[in-house]
Computed example of a mutant assay.
Amino acid sequence: MNYTALDFETANASRASVCAVGFVRVENGKIVKSAHQLINPQMRFDYRNEAVHGITEYDVRNAPIFSDYWDELRQYLSDIVIAHNAAFDISCLRSTLDVYGLAPTNFKYLCTLRISRKTLGLQSNSLDSLARALNLGYFKHHNALEDAAMCAKLFEILRERTDVSKFAKDFLEPKDRLRGVYKKAEIGHKTKHPFPTPPISRGECEKFFQPELFKFAKIIGSPQEIRKPGGAGQGKVNLEELLDFDFSPIDFSKKFVVTGIFSSISRKEAESLILYRGGEIQRTVDSQTDYIVVGGVKPPSWNRGEYGEKIDTALKIGRARFLSESHFLREIQ
């Protein structure tokens, strides 16, 4: 089996803040390529992340940004990718591709953490614990290259004990293969990266993807057009479309208003999570509000385009980002 063991380190809680990439390419049981690359995430570094991996903003000052390194990395992500706690590393890759508007590649991936839990029956399945328990040797944990190399060693043992193929997942489903193109249009308004102004054309899609995939595309207007009532000839704003619109990373140091009925947690619990991450809770919406977190229970009034005072005020001001309950919980964890 040929595969690439992959590991990311991040500068802060955002999955798009990749500051180091390490990978090991294994073909026919032998390592044929290994690489470690520091990445400038163009984001702040959190002291808690620095304490884990030891990488600082000074270290990456002359490092390439992810978009400059993507062509080098993607050639090794063509068949099978493995990672320990793949949910984190795959999320980092997806988020960073979205932020830079990069066309994604497709591959199957496997998580050695998940396979270990199902197969080995050990009390702890962290990478360093497994390395000790299985006598895989010393390595510098949270160095991206050494983590990737240890992940490859672990994977070889797991392959001997179980059919790992049953754990494989696709990085992209067919409906997601245009993601990099239309995300480029969405995010280009809010970053300094020179992405095209939406809506993007069918011709631009053709540069990246096959025409038969166009039926999965989501071609949208600009954030300004979507956020303003009556913008782009839409009449009343569809709040559900707003909540599904923007999946770029959340800055939890900003000002939040929490509203609506939550299905997974209480509103107070949501506010506590924001405060714990360094954010500020506002009781009313004003021109300084950065985010509106909207509970996942849809009231009947939404069908009539009536969203309540807080949401209506935010729509009139047109500044705050709207976050669905599911998006908020996914990013806050």
Rank of each mutant, 00 (worst) to 15 (best):
V99G: 10
F23A: 13
S326Y: 06
E240T: 13
F167L: 03
V181H: 10
S34P: 07
W70A: 00
T119F: 05
A63R: 00
L97K: 11
L97A: 06
R48I: 05
D89Q: 07
R74A: 02
I80E: 10
R330P: 03
L315G: 05
C111S: 15
K228R: 04
H84N: 06
A320N: 02
F216Q: 06
P64H: 00
L122T: 15
G188R: 15
W302D: 11
L77T: 04
P249R: 09
E57M: 08
L122P: 05
G308I: 00
F195V: 06
L127S: 09
D163W: 04
L178K: 09
R114F: 09
L134A: 10
M150T: 12
Q282C: 03
P104Y: 11
F171M: 04
R202I: 14
R202C: 05
T313S: 13
K169V: 13
E9K: 03
W70Q: 00
C151S: 08
S95V: 04
F66R: 02
L102Q: 15
L145C: 03
K316A: 08
D147G: 04
L120I: 04
K33I: 09
K316R: 07
S91C: 13
G260I: 00
V285P: 00
F23D: 04
G296Y: 00
F262M: 01
P174D: 12
F8N: 08
D286T: 11
K166E: 14
A86N: 12
P64E: 00
I187N: 14
P174Q: 06
R15C: 05
F139M: 08
K30Q: 12
D176R: 04
A149H: 09
E240C: 10
L38R: 01
G279A: 08
A270E: 01
F66S: 03
V293R: 01
F23W: 11
N106F: 11
R177N: 04
Q234H: 15
S95G: 05
K190W: 15
Q37A: 01
D244T: 13
L273A: 06
V32N: 10
R48M: 07
G295T: 00
E57Y: 01
I65N: 05
Y58R: 13
S324N: 01
N106A: 15
R15M: 11
T105D: 03
V32G: 08
S67Q: 08
S116D: 07
T10F: 08
E269F: 06
L239W: 00
S34A: 15
F208N: 01
V32I: 15
T112I: 15
L93A: 12
